[in-house]
Design a protein around this nucleic acid. Structure first.
Ligand SMILES: [Zn+2]
Length: 679
DNA sequence: GCAAGGTC
């Protein structure tokens, strides 16, 4: 087919979407061609020629020619001009530029979300003609949806959405670039050194969250807890009873209970309860859930999982992975995917089982999360060639999750026995798997269960085998790894599926965070950054800034305010705090940052860590740890009855669950480096 | 060089 002289140019967000759109709209004859190595498709419809071409996400980015800060001048430039990483966008840019020349109209067929509206708008504005623009609005890339959207095109772009999108870019740029530059300026002013520092609407609250959790963890002082462990024998098997009476707050209470229990030979069954528990199938994967499961099962970082999923998508083995959706609409064709999966040897038996098990029409057990442009992640059923071991793991996880979501509940039979020994109440809960349900396909749920539930009667007496006191310690819960941090971001709704894992990695790249034994720790620089941000750029440290942005963008979309006004207001706010910082605070902040980087020496060093002393001979963190340590001593004395200061310190310094700063202070006192007496 | 947001 010859290239038509004049045509309507349809712009998709990515090549895969371009092909789906072309295939859905072309009906009969579709011709694939290429420019600069980038594919595009040509077809005729009612005598009009159409060319379907594609972007590759954003082809333009904000840039400035100004140095220093505050910086308020920026403009859109092709991404490939500004960075090596965006080099791959150049052929897409060139191809679209050429195809725009002979187009009589432009249809923005990028994903129907805020970013898709901006991607298409900028391409048409920079390379085409906005006066001849249309927007195609579809919620899925299925032929039905695409045809419907194509037949109901309206003239003009969705400008309120575009304006909101442009505003988001500008606000993020203004806050991010300016505050990042302010931080770097502070260090350079004090030391003359150039170091790359950054701050932003998403990364900074994420850093603050880790800092806050880590501070509390480092200051955590465990307290002893007491429990009574009683072993009984039922049908020749040993079981541990769970104490359900009033918790023992003191060691003597537990000892008294143990003495009384030891006088008894039997535990009396007061009540029994049989129950049937059902565990529903898991929802299909969105990216966050896939990242969490791959971390739990295989120890993969969120970024690694995402990159593998992206490869699988490009190989056409799975659907679009950067989705928040837990929905699988029927239009994806459940049956045909199952049929294709059944052809893959590894899954033949599993799929066969599933199809036998499910007599009614296939129905996925969907979750509540949605996505404006994509369904949940599912396997396409395409047969793969060879895969690396890691790729296979992720693919397998996706296939199994897909099968599981169509399967049936896990059914557990449980027996709960309520027992009494002397005056103390205990419970024994036993569960047995009655029906494996979806666990057959996705065996990654740990369930505590027994093979057989013993037969038991109310009033029956059970022989006690052993009873003892278990001394435990209260624990501190909030520690993060990359996967749980990503879940936190998801929970507070900052970042997107595409960016969360990447933003977490950038906090490591900047040297704010590091991983020690799989757990995230904050570096001295990370603490210093968090303090500078907290003091001088407080707005940027909270997820509330995102909420504020969302409200403003919503107002733009509903035409209540104009982008120009929002941007102007933000520039005003920023201008004030940036100039104030530059004038009055940069020196102080710079010294603080430089010390954390060891660029300048600390004059008055903490005996323990060498950081700046707050008062006496300890830094802020170790002072606080010492304060808490002396306070908490009386709790230990009260709970244990007797406990010397030395015993207390020794125990604290040995326990792994004690906070790091607390442990260090306890050790320093024991070694005589610092002096401290109990309160 | 610095953000966050797309995608190869
Ligand atoms: Zn210290």
């Amino acid at each position: 087919m010859m290239m038509p002289k004049r045509y309507v140019l349809v712009i998709a967000e990515k090549p895969k979407a371009a092909f789906k759109i072309a295939r859905a709209l072309s009906g009969s004859k579709l011709v694939k061609q290429s420019l600069y190595g980038i594919p595009y498709w040509v077809f005729y419809h009612n005598g009009v020629a159409y060319v379907i071409a594609s972007a590759a996400g954003h082809l333009f980015t904000l840039a400035t020619g100004d140095y220093g800060f505050p910086v308020f001048n920026y403009y859109w430039v092709p991404s490939w001009v500004t960075s090596k990483e965006a080099k791959y966008t150049k052929p897409y840019y060139l191809a679209l530029k050429k195809l725009c020349k002979n187009a009589i109209a432009f249809i923005n067929a990028c994903d129907y979300d805020i970013e898709g509206s901006v991607i298409g708008y900028l391409i048409i504005r920079e390379l085409g003609n906005l006066n001849k623009a249309y927007r195609m609005k579809f919620s899925t890339l299925t032929p039905q949806d695409l045809r419907k959207a194509f037949s109901s095109l309206s003239k003009g772009l969705d400008m309120p959405m575009v304006e909101a999108g442009l505003c988001r870019h500008e606000l993020d740029w203004l806050w991010g670039i300016n505050v990042s530059r302010a931080l770097m300026y502070a260090v350079k002013r004090v030391t003359g050194k150039k170091v790359i520092l950054s701050a932003g609407r998403v990364q900074s609250p994420t850093l603050m969250e880790v800092v806050s959790a880590e501070k509390q963890r480092n200051l955590f002082i465990p307290t002893p807890t007491f429990n009574i462990n009683v072993q009984v024998s039922i049908g020749g098997k040993l079981y541990s009873l769970e104490y359900i009476g009033k918790p023992f707050t003191k060691k003597t209470d537990a000892e008294e209970a143990l003495n009384r229990i030891k006088r008894e030979k039997w535990a009396t069954i007061e009540n029994i309860r049989y129950e049937v528990e059902k565990i529903k199938p898991p929802p299909p994967f969105n990216l966050g859930d896939l990242q969490a499961e791959a971390a739990k099962i295989y120890g993969f970082s969120p970024l690694k999982t995402q990159e593998i999923a992206e490869q699988l998508y490009l190989d056409a083995l799975i659907s679009y992975p950067r989705t928040n959706s837990q929905k699988l609409p029927p239009t994806i064709g459940y049956k045909s995917i199952m049929a294709k999966l059944k052809e893959i040897p590894e899954y033949t038996e599993l799929v066969g089982n599933l199809l036998l098990e499910v007599s009614r029409p296939l129905k996925p057990h969907e979750g509540g999360k949605t996505d404006p442009a994509h369904p949940a992640i599912y396997p396409t059923g395409l047969k793969s060639k060879t895969m690396t071991a890691d790729k296979r793991k992720i693919y397998d996880l996706i296939v199994r999750r897909f099968l599981a979501t169509f399967s049936s509940n896990i059914v557990l039979q449980s027996l709960t026995i309520y027992l009494k020994i002397s005056n103390y109440r205990f419970r024994l809960k036993l569960r047995k798997i009655y029906a494996k349900g979806w666990l057959k396909y996705y065996p990654y749920l740990n369930i505590d269960y027994v093979e057989n539930i013993p037969s038991i009667d109310k009033g029956q007496k059970i022989p006690i085998v052993k009873a003892k006191i278990i001394i435990g310690y209260s624990r501190y819960g909030r520690t993060y790894n990359k996967s749980s941090l990503l879940k936190w971001m998801e929970g507070v709704n900052i970042g997107t599926e595409s960016t969360r894992a990447r933003i977490i990695e950038s906090l490591f790249l900047r040297g704010y965070l590091k991983t020690v034994k799989g757990k995230i720790e904050v570096t001295p620089l990370g603490y210093a950054i968090s303090e500078v941000l907290e003091r001088y750029f407080k707005d940027l440290t909270s997820v509330e800034l995102t909420r504020k942005f969302e409200k403003m963008l919503n107002d733009i979309r509903e035409r209540r305010v104009r982008r120009e006004d929002i941007v102007k207001e933000s520039k005003n706010i920023l201008s004030n705090i940036l100039l104030e910082f530059k004038d009055k605070a940069a020196e102080k902040a710079g010294i603080e940052l430089a010390k954390s980087l060891k660029y300048i020496p600390v004059e008055n060093k903490c005996t323990i860590c060498g950081n700046e002393v707050l008062e006496g001979s300890l830094c802020k963190n170790h002072s606080r740890a010492l304060e808490l340590l002396t306070e908490k001593y009386k709790v230990w004395v009260n709970v244990l009855g007797t406990c010397s200061w030395k015993e207390y310190l020794e125990k604290i310094s040995k326990l792994n669950i004690s906070g790091k700063w607390v442990r260090e202070v306890a050790q320093a006192i024991l070694k005589g480096y610092i002096e401290a007496n109990p309160q």
